[in-house]
Write a protein that binds this DNA or RNA. Sequence first.
DNA 1: GTCTATACAACGATAGAC
DNA 2: GTCTATCGTTGTATAGAC
Lengths: 191, 191
Amino acid sequence: MLAPVTQTTDARGRLVAAAQELFAARGVSATSPRQVLAASGVGQGSLYHHFPTKHDLALAAVGATVDDALAESLQALSAEAPALERALAYLGRPRDALAGCKVGRLTSDQAVMDDEAVRTVVGTYFARLVDALARVLAEAGLPDADARDRAHAAVAVVQGGYVLARATGDPDAMRAAVRGMAALLRAEAGR
Amino acid sequence: MLAPVTQTTDARGRLVAAAQELFAARGVSATSPRQVLAASGVGQGSLYHHFPTKHDLALAAVGATVDDALAESLQALSAEAPALERALAYLGRPRDALAGCKVGRLTSDQAVMDDEAVRTVVGTYFARLVDALARVLAEAGLPDADARDRAHAAVAVVQGGYVLARATGDPDAMRAAVRGMAALLRAEAGR
DNA sequence: GTCTATACAACGATAGAC
DNA sequence: GTCTATCGTTGTATAGAC
């Protein structure tokens, strides 16, 4: 019995993957268990066996999405480069601006904000991201309090960039916002 | 006939006001015509008389909300003060961070993004806001292209501040983001 | 563990009397 | 212009056989 994982991992895994995709594309509230069923290819009974309520499914899918997103973001911040360049690398990462942030969009989703457990997962994502960026900016030479403010601003610029790009239908809005922030950070560092 | 507006303005106006409130609190997708009915106090038939579909109601309510929000924002930018201070006044305006931006949140709302007319109204709001802020920053001495980038960044910081505050459940996240941005703009101006 | 069948409420919208 | 009654669909969830 060296392969301890049962075959059920498959059905469960497919359900979570399908839910992640649909939640990212249409939001949690706007996605029905029926749609997840259809996309995953499993039967109705299976879904409710693994996830008795939509809440359980949302928690699993959002948790997986947050884990993925956090790993990707922290990667840019922990590269082999000077601290300021690592911060700018996070800012400049390629993003699908018109799709919106898979995590950030959840804060406008009623089904998420009304669910304490899910909302906490989303909150932890941003808390950890800001913490990591603040450490990098402190390493770049800023006093701790200033580094935290700049980190909040930088993460906010990315989130707001998504909003601007989606609202205007123009991905350049995100690029302009990030460019503006990067220029300001460089200017301050070169003081 | 010097009073051209009929009494229907009342029922219609109450419907729009109720819709604005509900849309701001719960989103467009998550708000049903039934809820608008209940909140406004008018009858079922009246709603569908004035607004044959939910689309029509959304367009009217979102349009009204955008008009209000734009007027408020532009007010801070057109005060009697030096240009940089007007930009910082916009950034520092008091905001209900945990409630989210009544306009910005709409970009995560499926019912809005799928509706060309409504989405255009939301897009125009941000386009006009960025334009106005860019003009102020140019007046403060920045080259036009730089002013536009900084304006995108500043508007994005506010939108992202809402996201951070809602995600973490902490209004201070918005304040930190705005503080960080303001400090960067001041530093650049005092170069 | 997975399936089909079904329950019951709420959805957006319409009908037709007044 | 406004009302009550109702349509057909989809929502989340459950029942019970296999």
